[in-house]
Design a protein around this nucleic acid. Sequence first.
DNA 1: AGGAAGATCTACT
DNA 2: GTAGATCTTCCTA
Length: 186
Amino acid sequence: MRILPKEFYRRDPAMVARGLLGKVLVRRIGSENLSGKIVEVEAYYSKGDPAFRTGFLPRLLSYEPGAAFIYMVHANWLLNVIAYDKVFGGVLIRALEPLSGVERMKKNRGVEDTRELTNGPGRLTKALKITGVLNGVDVSNRRSSLMICCSQGRRVRIGSSHRIGVRRDLKRRLRFFIKGSGFVSK
DNA sequence: AGGAAGATCTACT
DNA sequence: GTAGATCTTCCTA
């Protein structure tokens, strides 16, 4: 599987978010690979976006496009990928369709149902053992223990909605998901 | 040093 | 459908 180059992330966050749908997130732990197809994402902007926590900005400005930004909310780790062209921003990975390492994910989550494994931002980080120690890793580098690869799959139908759990959202729809996927969060 | 908020999850009714 | 748990960061004192 080809890895997505850094240039992929040097675009408008909403564009990157849509582009990430159908791509494959790979978490390498030793010799084992846990992976899943990205089926749900949200875009965030550092300017003009009330949902963005501006307190993060000073630390984030040194991040290159394609860097993982992982932080804790409500006792859950959330995975973002930094993406920006003009205005700094990022993409929250909200749900995956498990591909490989499913048994390991079930153990990590303590859940048997494959549908419930990675259908939420806090759930997928737990299933793939993604925590703050991976903060800042370059997902466009093949040597990283967290990376995003191209899929050879066909084009996907994209649906959109307002973002989830956001107190004050924009009118613009910034949540994107693969239509018909059974692995989107509820 | 203490408290509140938050891009959530689980369990329970 | 709602309540409570959970934990890190940021803000105020």
